[in-house]
């Protein structure tokens, strides 16, 4: 299944979207193929409900932005997609979330394998206290994706190149990852995430701890990564959402208010609350 879809990715790379399963082949304005689907997702922290009946699809090779005021549940939703909420004891998730039509909360799914397929980049850069090389090699090592030596070197180099970091660090791969600047650390974390070739990358405000130049670099990177991965990004920065995403979901108080093509949301939102938020009236 995975290999098939990868092949499809490369075949359909140029027109940037695969035809929808139900749509006719002649339809050139086909809806994009969906990689992840969330239906009726409710999340509870103990007795407090944090998300209410959220339906979102993540389209293949698209960037989906999740925006909304602080505490609206967008990060909570993101963390449902790779089951990072499992770590929190009091957190309970209901509804269905599928990855390639398989329920990720299903009994036959191993959460470790799920997280290898759905990678994550965090708000604050969190390189491990290891060398740059070891940071990137961490995932391939634990999943046995590459043999030690040349093969692993290649994976590390390729991941660093894709993350646009290789040229900056090629001469100091053995130095600690923590010695890099904030923007470089975040790109190192992205390289670490893509080293295990995930299918989906979740980004939780990846630029909020970075300066404008580093932010621009990461945004550029997200746009490039889109060709190989499905990306969901939580952001507080509406210009960023407008720049990097093709779809935007607006959350408010745990509800999904509007989920549309980014252009639609930013030029002609249906809901008054969306309008108010993107024009800066609250948030």
């Amino acid at each position: 299944m995975t290999e098939d879809s990868d092949a499809m990715v490369s075949l359909t790379m140029e027109d940037d979207a695969a035809p929808a399963a139900a749509g006719s082949a002649a339809d050139t304005d086909a809806a994009p193929r969906m990689r992840m689907r969330a239906r009726d997702v409710n999340v509870f922290y103990a007795d407090k409900q944090a998300l209410f009946d959220v339906d979102i699809d993540l389209a293949l090779n698209k960037v989906t932005a999740l925006i909304g005021p602080s505490g609206c549940g967008k990060s909570t939703f993101l963390r449902c997609l790779n089951r990072m909420n499992d770590i929190i004891d009091i957190c309970r998730v209901t509804g269905s979330i599928t990855l390639d039509d398989r329920d990720i909360y299903g009994r036959d799914i191993d959460v470790v394998q799920l997280r290898a397929r759905v990678g994550m980049v965090f708000q604050k850069p969190n390189p491990f206290p290891k060398s740059i090389y070891e940071n990137v090699a961490y995932g391939p090592r634990i999943h046995g994706l590459a043999r030690k030596g040349r093969e692993l070197d290649e994976v590390v180099e390729q991941s660093l190149r894709r993350a646009g970091l290789f040229d900056e660090v090629s001469d100091r791969l053995q130095q600690p990852g923590t010695s890099l600047s904030g923007g470089q650390q975040q790109r190192l974390c992205i390289a670490r995430a893509i080293a295990i070739s995930p299918e989906v990358i979740l980004m939780d405000e990846p630029c909020s701890a970075l300066d404008p130049i580093a932010t621009a670099k990461v945004e550029e990177l997200i746009d490039e990564l889109r060709q190989h991965y499905t990306i969901a990004i939580v952001t507080h920065n509406m210009q960023q959402a407008a720049r990097v995403s093709q779809f935007t979901a607006f959350f408010h108080l745990g509800e999904l208010v509007e989920f549309e093509a980014t252009e639609q949301i930013f030029t002609n939102p249906h809901d008054q609350r969306t309008q108010d938020y993107i024009t800066g009236r609250f948030g």
Binding site: N82, M84, I87, V112, Q113, L114, R115, A116, R117, G119, M120, F122, N126, P127, F128, P129, Y138, G139, I142, H143, C189, R192, A193, I196
Partner: peptide, 10 residues
Amino acid sequence: LREGSLAMGA
């Protein structure tokens, strides 16, 4: 760091 590692599928 813990979350970073778990999110890698460790």
